[in-house]
Design a protein around this nucleic acid. Structure first.
Length: 659
RNA sequence: GCCCAUGUAGCUCAGAGGUAGAGCGCCUCCUUGGUAAGGAGGAGGUCAGGGGUUCGAGUCCCCUCAUGGGCUCCA
């Protein structure tokens, strides 16, 4: 007996019901229920407990999360049915749900156009209108393969072959049927408000060698209103888009044609913000015993051979800088008996743009003999690196080809890891909180199958990281096997105001690099001991973090990071001297401010200009203020107060200067 | 790298075979103003780049570059 039949038998209205949930198991109304589920359902109905929140058996309504998922699944079928009606030669693949909608993958070499998409959507609406009853039935795998052989659905046969069960389920609506494990709504009329949003190409099973399929995406919600709200939310995200705000607020630019894709120019206002962030960051790090260094952007290619980057990281590196052909002979002569293709030592050796800073920092460590007394030895740098990211993944500031890491490497003994990591976690929290980020998701990744380092080292290191995390009181999850081959790591993701999650901070242990470079220290027993390294970054990349920061604040930066903190505006010409006087006072107090003596525009227009530029404070002075030795402060958004010069400046400074 | 879409003034965009447009911004002038847009005039374009079709190409076709949304990738 199916859920539908039970409800009908018991006379329960099922207008908005799309399934039954027993414990964590979900059944649609079309599936024959196992005996125990059936019993429990009937019992719950008799005791009238179906909707009470503590009941183990519950009806799934279409607008609940589970209900939406069922409904979206049926949307995918309606999509496939629509496509088969309009383009019968199309072959079907799979059609699951997504977080807010659904998609279906089709094989159709000629693809679909935007026009096709509209037609498909219209046909889906028709299918919804037809309110076709949906039926579930089962076949043996053999029968199913036979059925699909008749229909020529080659992809379905492939999928069937991978299924282990011998009996498979089908769902049928009108002339359309599909291999599917469900669940589905009882009829096509039950699907909610939907819209097809995009088309993209994917490979069958994500395998690059497999044939290419066309994926059609849609979103679906219980009703038209929620669907519209979803699009409104998208608008909000669009409004905060850092690429748009970056242009409007003149923060950065990327000139793909003349300079190169993925290469960021920080404009004066963006650079001002960055410098404030750098100063703040550096002050904290110097307090914690870090040593700032600067290293070159290129190095002889052999450095990258030693570090192993050339073997493992090559596809993200820009090509080596080769000398002209005429120099080729000379270079080869200079080359010792090292790799012929690489060349080494001589004047004409190829150079390589750096994708990471660590080899330089190791060379600094190795530049003199280090004692155990020197450890932990902490180096930090705003190190600019270049990585050749594939063209399709570049995205504003969030994915670029040249970026500056807030990088640090800590050289230490293995028994210092725990304390050092817990110190690092404190620094991370302290710094991120200044940007309005306080919600974190933390992941500890442990040893993968392929790794360097001994099991003892891994045991000790993983345990140290765990203890440090526990001490930090951060909630964390363990990602078993997700560590990189050279050591375990902690990744920290931040949540922004729209609930989006971004990975920025990372703390990684490295058993590998010190060995590659034979980096050691002299211990108290006068023995050479191998040193351990922690790689860590808080922002990860200034560029990326800036993009996230822009979107999180919608360009309304906290006053202490604002590129222009205060605009001083004279009402008319006779107060210009007074405005200049106030402006100079602010400058003396290290405030970033602008003087607006513009006489060509109305006052309200000038105030609007500073509002649009998202300047947190304006000081407007006219005859009245000049007379009374006061200033009128307008905060962004419009609140206004008049204070004495001293009080007013004190107030603004308290919001704008961080020590 | 793959699929689809897009590329027109500094910015946002209209123009869809027949003389390159608007708003904002910029420059000049008028307006001397009290907390989010005062008025007038002006400058500004190899229509991403290259090739083709055509009497004639932002407009149609091909290639390249780049961007957007996905996919894949991200030791």
């Amino acid at each position: 007996m199916t859920g539908k039949e039970v409800l009908e038998k018991k006379g329960i209205k099922k207008d908005n019901i799309v399934g039954i949930k027993v414990g964590k198991k979900i059944f649609d109304l079309l599936t024959s229920l196992p005996k125990d589920v059936l019993d429990e359902l009937e019992k719950a109905i008799e005791e009238n407990k179906l909707d009470s929140s503590n009941s183990n058996v519950r009806l799934i309504r279409r607008d609940s999360p589970d209900g939406l998922d069922i409904m979206r699944h049926s949307c995918a079928h309606a999509l496939a049915q629509s496509v088969k009606r309009l383009f019968p030669e199309t072959k079907l693949s799979v059609g699951p749900t997504t977080e807010v909608g659904f998609f279906y993958d089709f094989y159709r070499p000629e693809g679909f156009s935007e026009e096709d998409l509209k037609k498909i959507e219209e046909e889906m609406k028709k299918i919804k209108g037809e309110n076709l009853p949906i039926r579930r039935f089962e076949l043996t795998k053999e029968e199913a393969i036979k059925l699909y052989e008749q229909k020529g659905e080659t992809f379905k046969i492939e999928i069937l072959k991978e299924i282990e069960d011998n009996v498979v389920s089908f769902y049928e609506q009108g002339e359309f049927l599909d291999l599917c494990r469900g669940p589905h709504v009882p009829s096509t009329g039950m699907i909610g408000a939907f819209k097809l949003t995009s088309i993209s190409a994917v490979h069958f099973r994500g395998d690059e060698k497999a044939p290419q399929l066309i994926r059609i995406y849609g979103v679906a919600f219980a009703d038209e209103e929620t669907l519209q709200n979803y699009f409104k939310q998208l608008e909000e995200i669009k409004k905060r888009d850092h690429r748009k705000l970056g242009k409007e607020l003149e923060l950065f630019m990327i000139d793909e044609d003349e300079i190169g894709p993925g290469l960021v120019i920080w404009l004066p206002k963006g650079a001002k913000i960055r410098r404030k962030i750098e100063n703040f960051w550096l002050k904290i790090h110097e307090k914690k015993g870090y040593n700032l260094v600067y290293t070159p952007h290129i190095a002889k290619i052999n450095l990258w051979k030693t570090s192993g980057h050339l073997d493992h990281y090559r596809k993200f590196m820009f090509p080596p800088m080769e000398w002209d052909k005429e120099d080729e002979k000379e270079r080869k002569e200079e080359a010792r008996d090292f790799e012929r293709s690489i060349g080494y030592g001589g004047e004409k050796t190829p150079y390589q743009l750096k994708p990471m800073n660590c080899p330089f920092h190791i060379m600094i460590f190795k530049s003199k003999t280090r004692s155990y007394r020197d450890l932990p030895f902490r180096l930090c740098e705003f190190g600019t690196v270049y990585r050749y990211e594939k063209s399709g993944v570049l995205h504003g500031l969030l994915r670029v080809r040249g970026f500056t890491q807030d990088d640090a490497h800590i050289f230490l003994k293995i028994d210092q890891i725990e304390e050092e990591v817990s110190e690092i976690l404190e620094i991370i929290k302290e710094i991120l909180s200044m940007f309005g980020f306080s919600e974190y998701m933390v992941f500890l990744s442990t040893r993968p199958e392929e790794k360097v380092g001994t099991d003892d080292e891994w045991d000790f290191a993983e345990e140290s990281l765990k203890k440090a995390l526990e001490k930090s009181k951060l909630n964390f999850e363990i990602d078993p096997g997700e560590g990189v081959f050279y050591g375990p790591k902690i990744d920290l993701k931040i949540k922004d105001v729209l609930g989006r999650v971004w990975q920025c901070s990372t703390v990684q242990l490295d058993f590998n690099l010190p060995r590659k470079f034979s980096a050691f220290y002299i211990d108290s027993d006068n023995q050479r001991k191998p040193v351990y390294i922690i790689h860590r970054a808080i922002f990860g990349s200034f560029e990326r973090f800036f993009g996230i920061f822009i979107e999180n604040t919608a360009g309304n930066f906290p006053p202490y990071f604002s590129p222009i903190q205060c605009a001083v505006i004279s009402v008319k010409e006779n107060s210009q001297d007074y405005a200049s006087f106030i402006y100079n006072l602010l400058l003396e107090n290290r405030l970033d401010c602008e003087l607006d003596l513009e006489t060509g525009e109305r006052l309200s227009k000038r105030i609007r200009n500073w509002e649009v530029a998202k300047v947190p404070f304006m000081i407007v002075v006219g005859e009245k203020e000049k007379e009374e030795k006061t200033i009128t402060i307008r905060e962004k958004g419009g609140s206004i107060k008049t204070l004495s010069i001293e009080e007013g400046i004190k107030y603004i400074l308290s919001k704008c200067i961080i020590e």
